[in-house]
Simulated scan of single mutants.
Amino acid sequence: MNEKLKQKVIDYAQQIGIDKIGFTSAEPFRELEKILHRHRELGYESGFEEKDIDKRVNPKFTLKNAKSIIAIAIAYPSKIPQPPKGVEGEYRGFVARLAWGIDYHLILQEKLNQLGIYLKQMVPDAEYVAMTDTGVLSDHAVAERAGIGWIGKNSLLITPEFGSYVYLGEMITNISFPEDHPMENQCGDCTRCLDACPTQAIVQAGQVNAKRCLSYITQRKDMLEEELMEKLGNRLYGCDTCQIVCPKNKGINFGHQEKTLPNPELAKPLLKPLLTISNKEFKETWRQTAAAWRGKKPIQRNVIIALAHFKDKTALPLLKDLLINDERPVIRQTSAWSLGKIGGKEVEEILLQAKIKEKDDKVLQEIIRSLNKLANEGILS
């Protein structure tokens, strides 16, 4: 009976636009448990994870009567159809592909809710708990065990059809479904993701130091270390480097999911307007994207770093205003660093003016560092 039910669920999933679906047991993820404990010992956690490892590896902590887990995948595009081009003085930043369309949490939750309603129609006493990466389970571990793909050396799930450009979600249920078989790992001896990672965050195959990952770093709210700011480039949210270089992603671009399609002006936004955007404007423009969940401050800090990356002198009036007048110390401190990177006689005057007014020790230290940098370059009078 459950084989027939499984096929009905698969058929319905296809009807509602789920790209891949797989089934696995609700048994604990014991191998993952060892990995997570080791990860914690090494200090590789980002801090965004569920703190209780038992909850992360045992589905029965989420649903007491759990018997199976249904894993789903939704493909998202890797290319912007008509990307806007940056020109001198009008530089653009870049948002990672997973945040191009409508917030993927909303997309997945909608599909999982539809699937749950259908399941209840088929089995009235069915119980289920649906979740995406805000849930306690590891989406990648669930999807791998459910046969949707394999976990690559960059720790992302890779599918044969869509590469790693997939959103993942799952549903724990009290229905016992026949299990699918995990796929063979097809990465072979390829190390392109390890070699290309800008911060060497991929420590070894399948192990990522989240604190070094630029995707996590773009979401931090504090002042970044200089080494990381140098590596950030014009990334505003997330990082796609390890996906771009992956041979399994070569030539892959699926735009059939309408809600995942990018708004070019949000996928590659102009930098300078983001420095003066109001809270209201930011919420109205960005609220439906996954990039908005940390608020505008991390994005604005990343914009300031990107302007330094481009050495954009047209941004000096904006950076001056932020350094002297902004209430947020992190923004002032990053502006001081950015100005020092851009350099020039005009920057010296801005920094000296700010030095007189600044009361925050960390910001003041950054202003002095930038002045010293200019002096070493022979710019100061």
Rank of each mutant, 00 (worst) to 15 (best):
K8M: 13
K8W: 12
Y12R: 14
Q14D: 14
Q15P: 00
I21V: 15
G22P: 03
F23S: 03
F23M: 07
T24F: 09
P28G: 08
R30H: 11
E31C: 08
E33L: 09
L36M: 07
H39D: 12
G43T: 06
G47P: 10
E49P: 12
E49A: 08
D52Y: 04
D52W: 01
D54Y: 07
D54A: 15
K55H: 13
V57Q: 00
F61L: 14
Y76E: 06
Y76Q: 01
P77Y: 08
K79S: 12
Q82G: 10
P84L: 00
P84Q: 01
K85E: 15
G86I: 09
R97Q: 12
L98V: 15
A99F: 07
A99Y: 04
G101P: 08
Y104F: 14
I107H: 00
I107Q: 12
L108S: 11
I117D: 14
Y118P: 05
L119K: 01
M122R: 03
M122H: 04
P124V: 06
A126T: 09
E127L: 13
T132C: 13
G135S: 05
G135A: 05
H140Q: 12
A141N: 01
A141K: 08
V142K: 09
E144F: 03
R145K: 13
A146Y: 03
G149N: 02
N154D: 08
S155E: 08
S155H: 10
L156G: 05
L156F: 15
F162E: 01
G163M: 10
V166M: 07
Y167A: 06
L168W: 02
T173A: 01
F177L: 05
G188N: 11
G188R: 05
D189K: 15
C190V: 10
T191N: 12
C193R: 02
C193T: 09
D195I: 13
V203W: 01
Q204S: 15
A205G: 11
A205R: 09
S215V: 05
I217Y: 00
M223H: 14
E227I: 14
L232Q: 04
N234G: 08
G238W: 00
C242Q: 10
C246Q: 00
G251E: 05
N253S: 13
G255K: 05
Q257N: 15
E265F: 14
L266I: 15
P269D: 05
L271N: 03
K272V: 15
K272Y: 02
L275I: 04
F282R: 00
F282P: 06
Q288H: 14
T289L: 10
K297W: 06
I299P: 02
N302S: 08
N302Q: 07
I304H: 00
A306W: 04
L307E: 01
L307A: 04
K313N: 12
L318H: 11
K320M: 04
L323N: 02
N325G: 02
R328H: 15
I331F: 00
W337M: 10
K341S: 13
I342W: 02
G344Q: 07
G344C: 08
G344I: 09
E348V: 15
E349Y: 10
E349Q: 06
I350R: 00
K357S: 13
E358I: 13
E358F: 10
K359T: 14
K359P: 04
D361R: 13
L364K: 14
Q365C: 01
E366A: 15
I368G: 03
R369P: 01
A375D: 08
N376I: 14
I379L: 07
